Computed example of a mutant assay.
Amino acid sequence: MTHTPPHLDDRIEPITIRTGFLWIPGEQIPTPHGTLPRGPLYVEWLAPAEVTRPHPLVLVHGGGGQGTDWLGTPDGRQGWAYDLVRAGYAVYVVDRPGHGRSPHHPEGLGPTAPPLPLEFASFLFAPPESADAHTQWPWERGFDGPEFQQLTSAMGFFLADFAEGQRLDGERLAALLDRIGPAVLVTHSAGSPGGWLAANRRPDLVKAIVAVEPMGPPYADFPGLGEITYGLTYAELTTEPPIDAPEQLKADPAAHRVPGLSGTPIAVVTGSASGSAAQSPPLVDFLNTVGADAELLPLEDSGIVGNGHGLILEANSAETVKPVIAWLDALEESR
Rank of each mutant, 00 (worst) to 15 (best):
T4S: 05
V269L: 06
G76T: 12
D204G: 09
E107N: 06
F123Y: 12
D10H: 15
G170C: 01
E236F: 00
R167D: 12
V51E: 13
L197E: 00
V305A: 04
K207M: 05
N307A: 06
A160F: 00
H7G: 04
V290R: 08
Y82F: 11
Y234K: 00
V51S: 06
R167T: 10
G271C: 13
P223V: 10
D10R: 15
I266H: 01
L232V: 02
G310F: 00
H61R: 11
G67W: 06
L124A: 14
P56I: 07
H61A: 07
E314H: 07
T289F: 10
L283Q: 14
T187D: 02
P265W: 10
L8F: 15
E13C: 07
E147Q: 15
A81H: 03
Q248S: 05
P138Y: 12
A330E: 14
E332F: 02
W70G: 02
D204M: 07
P40N: 10
P32Y: 07
T16L: 14
R53N: 10
L287W: 09
P253Y: 04
D252N: 15
G308S: 08
A211E: 11
P117A: 02
Q149Y: 11
T264E: 11
L237G: 01
S302K: 03
E119S: 14
G191Q: 04
P115M: 03
L176T: 01
L176G: 01
T16Q: 15
D75F: 15
G88N: 04
R172D: 00
T270N: 05
M155H: 04
T270G: 07
E314S: 03
Q248G: 02
G98N: 13
S272W: 08
A163Y: 14
S153C: 03
G98R: 13
R172Y: 00
R141K: 13
I312C: 02
F120D: 08
G79T: 07
S189C: 14
W137I: 04
F162K: 13
H105K: 03
G100M: 00
R179Y: 06
N316T: 14
E300G: 05
T187Q: 00
E44K: 14
A220G: 05
L168K: 02
F21L: 09
V43P: 10
A220I: 00
